[in-house]
Amino acid sequence: MMKKTLIIVAHPDIKHSTVNSRWIHELEKYPETFTIHQLYQSYPDGHIDKLFEQKLIESHMNIVLQFPVYWFSSPPLLKQWQDEVLTYGWAYGVHGDKLRDKKMGLAVSTGITAQDYSQQGRWGMTLPEILSPFELTAKYIRADYQTPFIFYGIDSHASYNAEALQKIDQSAQNYIEYLQRIFR
C-alpha cells in the first residue's frame, strides 16, 4: 500500500500550463493517495507560511516537487520555499531530522528535447545532472532521493496538435505509474 504523498507544485502560470495542469488533473483522481499543494496559488504575494509548510511536510510520508524547468532550475518561488522552509534545526543540523528517510522526488517538464539534454546534445549535460542541486539538497537533509520523472519536449509557446496532446495525456498516466512504483 502506498503512503500519502505531498505533491508541491511550483508553476507560476498554471492557468496556461498544458503539461503540469494535466498532471494535476490526473493526480486529483487519487485524493486518498496525493495531496496537491500549489505554491503560486497559496502564496501569490510570495510570503510563505514556514510553519504551515513544515507541518504539511511532517504529515506526509513522501514529497514530490513538481515544476517546469526554468533557466535550468526551478521557478523562483520553489527556491524561496526551499530557503525558508528547509531550516536549520528542522530539516538539517542539530535535531534537524524532519525529512530524514522520507522519499523525495521531482516531476519536471521541459520545453526542450531529451537529445538537447544529453552529453552530445545542445547543452552538453543531462537533465538529471542539471537538477543535481535537488539531489544534493535531499542528501543534505537526509531524505531518500528518487530518480526524477521527466517530460521532455513540449514548448509552452507551441500550439498543440492531437499527437502532442496524446503525448501529454500519456505522460500523466506515466506520472501516476511512476509515483505508485517509487512510493510503495
Score class of each variant (00 low, 15 high):
residue 41 Q to H: 08
residue 9 V to I: 13
residue 158 A to K: 13
residue 131 L to R: 15
residue 183 F to R: 08
residue 160 Y to I: 02
residue 159 S to N: 12
residue 74 S to V: 09
residue 177 E to L: 13
residue 68 P to T: 02
residue 91 A to I: 07
residue 153 G to H: 02
residue 98 K to L: 03
residue 170 Q to L: 13
residue 103 K to P: 04
residue 27 L to N: 02
residue 158 A to H: 13
residue 61 M to V: 03
residue 31 P to M: 07
residue 44 P to A: 09
residue 67 F to I: 12
residue 22 R to M: 07
residue 134 F to D: 03
residue 88 Y to T: 11
residue 112 I to S: 12
residue 182 I to H: 12
residue 125 M to C: 13
residue 139 K to T: 14
residue 140 Y to W: 14
residue 4 K to L: 07
residue 24 I to G: 06
residue 95 H to K: 10
residue 95 H to M: 11
residue 6 L to M: 09
residue 116 D to F: 00
residue 168 I to E: 06
residue 41 Q to E: 14
residue 77 L to I: 13
residue 2 M to Y: 00
residue 159 S to W: 05
residue 44 P to K: 05
residue 20 N to D: 08
residue 5 T to R: 08
residue 184 R to W: 04
residue 108 V to P: 00
residue 137 T to E: 12
residue 28 E to G: 03
residue 107 A to T: 05
residue 72 F to N: 05
residue 156 S to M: 05
residue 3 K to S: 10
residue 79 K to P: 09
residue 78 L to H: 09
residue 10 A to Y: 05
residue 107 A to V: 07
residue 76 P to T: 00
residue 3 K to V: 04
residue 168 I to C: 09
residue 141 I to G: 03
residue 83 D to W: 01
residue 11 H to I: 04
residue 6 L to Q: 03
residue 112 I to K: 10
residue 57 I to F: 10
residue 112 I to W: 07
residue 177 E to Y: 01
residue 48 I to M: 07
residue 41 Q to G: 02
residue 89 G to N: 05
residue 123 W to L: 14
residue 119 Q to M: 07
residue 109 S to D: 01
residue 118 S to Y: 01
residue 178 Y to T: 05
residue 95 H to I: 00
residue 34 F to D: 03
residue 61 M to C: 09
residue 151 F to V: 09
residue 77 L to D: 04
residue 135 E to S: 15
residue 104 M to K: 02
residue 52 F to A: 11
residue 9 V to Q: 08
residue 97 D to H: 10
residue 158 A to Q: 15
residue 134 F to N: 10
residue 176 I to D: 03
residue 26 E to Y: 09
residue 50 K to W: 00
residue 88 Y to C: 12
residue 159 S to A: 03
residue 36 I to Y: 04
residue 9 V to G: 05
residue 147 T to G: 09
residue 139 K to S: 14
residue 64 V to K: 09
residue 182 I to K: 13
residue 90 W to G: 04
residue 113 T to L: 03
residue 131 L to N: 13
residue 168 I to Y: 07
residue 183 F to S: 08
residue 134 F to I: 03
residue 31 P to R: 06
residue 104 M to S: 11
residue 175 Y to I: 06
residue 81 W to S: 10
residue 105 G to N: 05
residue 63 I to G: 10
residue 146 Q to L: 14
residue 136 L to Q: 15
residue 52 F to I: 01
residue 167 K to N: 12
residue 67 F to M: 11
residue 152 Y to R: 09
residue 72 F to C: 06
residue 32 E to D: 13
residue 81 W to A: 00
residue 18 T to R: 13
residue 4 K to F: 06
residue 156 S to G: 02
residue 102 K to G: 07
residue 166 Q to C: 08
residue 180 Q to V: 07
residue 42 S to P: 00
residue 85 V to C: 02
residue 152 Y to K: 13
residue 129 E to T: 15
residue 158 A to R: 10
residue 52 F to H: 15
residue 41 Q to V: 01
residue 60 H to V: 07
residue 149 F to M: 10
residue 84 E to C: 00
residue 55 K to Q: 15
residue 101 D to S: 15
residue 42 S to A: 15
residue 82 Q to S: 08
residue 104 M to H: 01
residue 152 Y to E: 09
residue 27 L to Y: 02
residue 131 L to W: 14
